[in-house]
Amino acid sequence: MRAPSDVFLSDFTVDVAFFSDGEHYATQSYTVTASTWFSARQQALQMSVSSVYDDPRIPGLSRSATLRSGS
């Protein structure tokens, strides 16, 4: 029997899409290790803040994250 504190981690690939005023202009993929798909998505969004595509000069900058795969 495993201890309740045991957490199983998986590798997830998350695609973060970047938008300018609603128009898609770039996608960047991130591979993250996390316990859930939701956590992987949140980590990828946080990582995307350091992306070359994350530029405050871009009008209406927004992004979305989509889980591509998990193991």
Rank of each mutant, 00 (worst) to 15 (best):
A3W: 07
V7M: 11
F8Y: 10
S10D: 13
D11Y: 11
D11V: 10
D11H: 10
F12W: 15
F12P: 04
F12L: 11
T13I: 10
T13Q: 13
D15L: 09
V16M: 00
V16A: 08
V16R: 00
A17C: 08
A17D: 14
F19T: 00
D21E: 14
D21C: 06
E23P: 03
H24W: 07
Y25H: 10
Y25I: 04
A26R: 12
A26K: 12
S29L: 12
T31K: 11
T33Q: 14
T33Y: 00
A34I: 08
A34S: 14
T36I: 04
W37H: 11
F38H: 12
F38E: 15
A40R: 08
R41F: 01
Q42D: 15
A44R: 04
L45E: 00
Q46A: 15
Q46V: 06
M47D: 11
S48A: 15
S48T: 04
V49N: 06
V49A: 13
S51M: 01
S51G: 04
S51I: 02
V52F: 00
V52A: 10
V52K: 07
D54G: 01
D54V: 04
D54S: 12
D55N: 15
D55Q: 14
P56N: 01
R57M: 06
I58V: 15
P59A: 05
G60M: 03
L61S: 00
S62P: 01
S62E: 00
R63L: 07
A65C: 07
A65K: 08
A65E: 05
T66V: 12
T66E: 13
T66P: 00
R68Q: 12
R68A: 11
R68M: 09
S69G: 07
S69M: 02
S69Q: 11
S69T: 11
G70Q: 13
S71N: 10
S71F: 10
